[in-house]
Design a protein around this nucleic acid. Sequence first.
DNA 1: TAGTATTTGTCCGTATGTATT
DNA 2: TAATACATACGGACAAATACT
Lengths: 243, 243
Amino acid sequence: MSEIERGRGVALWSQISGILASDILKGQLRQGEQLPSAQELAMRFNVNRHTVRRAIAALEQRNLVRTEQGRGTFVQEQTLDYVISRRTRFTQNMRNLNVDADIRVLEEAHELPPPPVARALGLDRNEYVYRVETLDRADGHIIDYSTSYFPAARFPDLPALYRRLLSVTRTLAEFGVADYERKHTRVSARLPDATTARVMQQQTSRPLLYVESINADTRGVPVQYGITRFSGDWVQLVLMADH
Amino acid sequence: MSEIERGRGVALWSQISGILASDILKGQLRQGEQLPSAQELAMRFNVNRHTVRRAIAALEQRNLVRTEQGRGTFVQEQTLDYVISRRTRFTQNMRNLNVDADIRVLEEAHELPPPPVARALGLDRNEYVYRVETLDRADGHIIDYSTSYFPAARFPDLPALYRRLLSVTRTLAEFGVADYERKHTRVSARLPDATTARVMQQQTSRPLLYVESINADTRGVPVQYGITRFSGDWVQLVLMADH
DNA sequence: TAGTATTTGTCCGTATGTATT
DNA sequence: TAATACATACGGACAAATACT
């Protein structure tokens, strides 16, 4: 266990706050879990209850914990509410969430689609697709790792454009697809395989929300088939019926 | 590892088939996972390759595995597509899926709601609710473990009725709630806690789809708040926009 | 329904260390 | 050096909400 040092220029409450914060961020204190009472922490760190309270107040400020009078202090569930509706737009979603999003393209490929992908996009097995893999972050946390397939014939040289615009909506708009909507969405809970866990920098024991979706243009022709693996620890899907 | 016995009146292929089936159903062979090749299995069980093929054919018949020529044999993904829309009805869903559903009431209680539940139902903290816990099976598999809360004042003696009708729709209908719809749905991926894992008879390492929802009557007044824990291995949510 | 223990929230005051003027 | 202001740390008392019996 980490110890605190007096008279070293760092306030005790700040040291305690740091220790608890790191426990939370490293996942040693899990989401929703109750922290020891202020009294207990005071004994453990050999300080006054008020000092512990000061430390906890700082954590509350950072939205890492939530205190409930009479109950205790709990590790705040860091759920990023990702809204899924017929007209879901990732970039728009992130903007609404008021977080600073960071989209990174991991890989691009021009290839023949695996059978399920060909089926989803309504393509023949010998019609090429572009595959684009991206890693999306919000506030520094990895939110999702996504694999998208686009019909190559209809959207020539799409990856270059996407890499520049970093938005599916705007990329498709450049090709004249002014609007598209979710035709199909499947959600399941899975554990990541070794590769996915590595890419997402998370343990293989932490679950993912595995979302499979098809976007189609206004005439119902599929323009994108994608698999998005959301971090189960950070993301919660909110389903909206839209009208 | 289980061994097979010759000359005991049970055909070798049937024994092998049984062993593999139990491995799959117990989750030791995971969904989508590739089985050892027929050759390897033949060596392991000390039988001819044809006997193994006969065993695998039986599994394919039961839709537990799928063989792909030139690739191998894989554990069939047993995804039960659970449709979520604004007007989701569990019983109706099961009927559509054409499986034989089995609903069991595990527990009923008349109690004061935890704060989040009170908030969700728009109740005061001193207004009682009924809590009903059910375990739902389809084709013998545990599909979900669900906890529902209903305002007790509005629906006196609801659990008795529910226990008899085993359908939220019909139970609410008895109270004059002819129609209700999903006001809110949140989906996340979680690992089960010890209690949940025990109830659902699954390992704590297998993820759950954790669905939180509020149903409201036609005037928008909440009539049910529920948490449904779907087995991630067996259930896939299909989101539908309804018009 | 009532009573008790636990936990957080708020208020009082006191002492000490640190930075500024 | 002295005076001042401010943040830190501690101690105690009580209120409010909650949990449990």
